[in-house]
Design a protein around this nucleic acid. Structure first.
Lengths: 128, 128
DNA sequence: TAGATAATTAGCATAATATCGAAATGACTT
DNA sequence: AAGTCATTTCGATATTATGCTAATTATCTA
């Protein structure tokens, strides 16, 4: 029951479902791209993704400073079938689809930079 | 996304998963039988079952004073396939299976009576 | 080596959920 | 009609989840 419960809990959040749905369309997405899609703080998205990873729904790959997520290779067919069926025609997911096209058209570096600017964490950061 | 989310939330609880698993083996179960299986207060079980019903995972049928639950007739095949696979071999569900056999061997009336006795709600209940 | 940068982790406030006992509801039985 | 009984609803409390900012980690680059 542990797996069933962990997976169900992982999917029991709208933002995480949106992230999974995005990964069903696009092989790989960077954290900053998911962040842009969901409009949340980077830290929040990072935690959502780690919840999905703990549930074995997604895998991550580190490339330099970026971390890319993709659907888990051993995602059960039945589960992805259900997700595909139940999400079909959803207006939120539909909207995300075109939003993602715009996001993917941008350079990831550009994306991260604009995220830093619009959400300025830029305190002087005095060290002691 | 609404359906996906509602269903995932409904399954994001161990007790509700156990109830669904029980209904995958037995056509119909009365609230008092599920209560006995889960070892919770009747009110709590009633609430769990209504959450499952709101998510369209189960249906209910009222017969006299008893309410019987069964899996929804239009439960997606993909979903029940995933549940079947991911729950297969689970020790908790396995244990529930034999517990249910014992429970079903009892007369429902007997069951309800013993629940009243072991959890005595029996205050004098003075009216004003 | 020092600074910049993408992501993660930690700490905290708020919102949602689970659970219970008590009271209310609807249905049978005298 | 009144009582009994299975279930549901209500109100309160405790736990869990989500979101933020700040701090930390890991990696690149000047």
């Amino acid at each position: 029951m542990k797996i069933t419960l962990t997976v169900s809990r992982a999917l029991a959040d709208g933002n995480r479902i949106r992230a999974v749905a995005a990964l069903m369309r696009h092989d790989e997405l960077c954290v900053c791209q998911v962040t842009e899609l969901l409009g949340l703080a980077t830290a929040t998205v990072s935690r959502h993704m780690s919840i999905l990873r703990d549930a074995q729904l997604v895998q991550s790959r580190k490339k330099g400073r970026w971390v890319y997520y993709r659907l888990s290779s051993d995602l059960p067919d039945s589960l992805s079938a259900w997700l595909g069926e139940s999400l079909a025609g959803s207006p939120e997911i539909e909207a995300d689809r075109s939003a993602l096209d715009d996001i993917l058209a941008c350079d990831p570096e550009e994306l991260c930079r604009s995220q830093r600017i619009t959400r300025p964490n830029e305190q002087p950061k005095v060290k002691d």
